[in-house]
Amino acid sequence: MNVSLSMLLLIAACAAVTIVPRVLPFLIIRNLKLPVLALRWLSYIPICILTALVVSNVLGESGPLSFDWQVIAIMIPTILFALWTKSLLFTVIIGVVLMAALRFFIA
């Protein structure tokens, strides 16, 4: 249960490079009237980044054009369930249950 000095410094440096990009926009944008165009650009960020994150979970780890077919198979009913219930909690639960079931039957 000890922390070496070099590890502590490494963790602190990683914390710094993580915190700066997280905090900087909050500090800049308070002192700056953003043009309408910039606000419109920012309004697209949630959908774009969420889509990109979903796709990054679908892309497999073994090089380009490799896909995680388990994830794709379970994604489809999960999307339909999300559209139907509009519930974050139930969608997460059903996704996990379906994935567990798929792996159980494959194994």
Partner: peptide, 20 residues
């Protein structure tokens, strides 16, 4: 992974996207 828990994050992103 055996319990499908790693899919919690993906299904959460999917649901957030659908809600958006």
């Amino acid at each position: 992974e055996a319990f499908g828990l790693d899919f919690a994050l993906t299904s959460m992103f999917i649901a957030l996207l659908v809600l958006q």
